[in-house]
């Protein structure tokens, strides 16, 4: 493994080639907020909270740190006025749809009063952890995205679930919003007796 030197927030940091900026930062004790990242899964880059500024020979660019690989001599800033503004706006946009778990924490961090709960059910913010875990770790592809744009949703199609879900239930604790639990239950309704007791029952 080749070791690379770079600078994150003024700190000299060492990282292995092929790892990401997010990994390098976290190893160095620098926290970057994320909603859709999980170390076990391939980078997704969807929530856009992990954007950082890189500087390569004077050319500054915003990149998703969860996916951008470390480069020798790269100068990275994880907090600038611009980045804070961006993160604040992203959290604000998500808050308009859902206010659960980590979003509440982020809202507080960025000084947003967003506790406008929408309905009783926790709302999914499409981090895709449930979908990707099912596909990448369990190789099952049961949980899926449907629809596009603002109509995008995750689904647990009961026919597929019935025939292929191994009932590992490892996806349940992954969901940061809490929405997955009820979606899963809906799909579970159609399960045969042998599927065992309802999760959580």
């Amino acid at each position: 493994m080749e070791t690379i030197q770079l600078e994150i927030d003024g700190k000299k940091v060492e990282a292995e080639r092929g790892t990401t900026l997010l990994q390098a930062a976290r190893k160095a004790g620098i926290e970057i907020p994320t909603l859709c990242h999980d170390d076990r899964l391939a980078p997704f880059g969807a929530c856009r909270l992990c954007l950082v500024e890189i500087d390569r020979g004077g050319r500054k660019r915003l990149v998703a740190s969860c996916a951008y690989e470390v480069e020798d001599g790269l100068v990275v800033k994880t907090v600038t006025e611009k980045i804070v503004k961006i993160r604040r706006m992203i959290v604000e946009l998500l808050l308009a749809e859902a206010t659960t778990g980590p979003l509440e924490v982020l809202a507080e961090k960025y000084g947003l009063k967003g506790s406008r709960f929408k309905g009783d059910e926790p709302a999914c913010f499409l981090c895709g952890l449930c979908v990707r875990y099912c596909a990448e770790v369990k190789k099952k592809d049961i949980t899926c995205f449907i629809g596009r744009g603002i109509g995008r949703e995750v689904a647990f199609p009961s026919d597929l679930a019935r025939s292929a879900c191994p009932l590992c239930r490892e996806c349940l604790p992954l969901c940061p919003s809490g929405a997955w639990y009820s979606l899963y239950l809906k799909g579970y309704e159609g399960m045969p007796e042998e599927a065992g007791p309802r999760p959580g029952a």
């Binding site: 880059g45 856009r48 998500l94 499409l126 629809g147 596009r148 995008r152």
Partner: peptide, 18 residues
Amino acid sequence: SADESCGKCTPCREGSKR
């Protein structure tokens, strides 16, 4: 654009809606 956005990332999905 709002109709055709794939909905994956926050700024495009939520931003175009707003």
